[in-house]
């Protein structure tokens, strides 16, 4: 029962961070600021959602197969945790090299 409540809490907070990432993707005025929102919000959202699912998967009982599946889910979370910042950095560098102008705060105050 405790595991179920914990997993529900984790999944709902994950969904909240997914939501802020998406709203940031829609609202921010410039490419680099959008990368700020998606690169962080998606990583933490996926991490929280996947750990919530892994915890729920254990709530039926600790058998060998369910523990294996939970370890696999946590490995996916670890992979996303490594891969998402790398992809964010690669795309930001490509944008800088391709001549997308960053919006500075002086431009915003006009």
């Amino acid at each position: 029962m405790i595991l179920t409540i914990l997993s529900v809490l984790l999944i709902i907070s994950g969904i909240f961070f997914f939501f802020t990432a998406t709203v940031g993707l829609l609202r921010f005025p410039d490419f680099y600021c959008r990368m700020q929102a998606t690169g962080k919000g998606d990583t933490l959202g996926a991490l929280l959602c996947l750990s919530g699912i892994a915890v729920y998967n254990l709530s039926d009982g600790f058998t060998l197969s369910s523990v294996l599946v939970s370890i696999k889910i946590m490995l996916i979370a670890f992979f996303i945790f490594i891969a998402n910042p790398t992809a964010t950095h690669a795309i930001t560098r490509a944008g800088l090299n391709a001549g997308v102008k960053p919006l500075m705060k002086e431009d915003l105050q006009k």
Partner: peptide, 12 residues
């Protein structure tokens, strides 16, 4: 970027 974001959500 949008495609990448959609991909992460699809994984979950």
């Amino acid at each position: 970027v949008s495609v990448g974001v959609i991909g992460t959500k699809t994984t979950v």
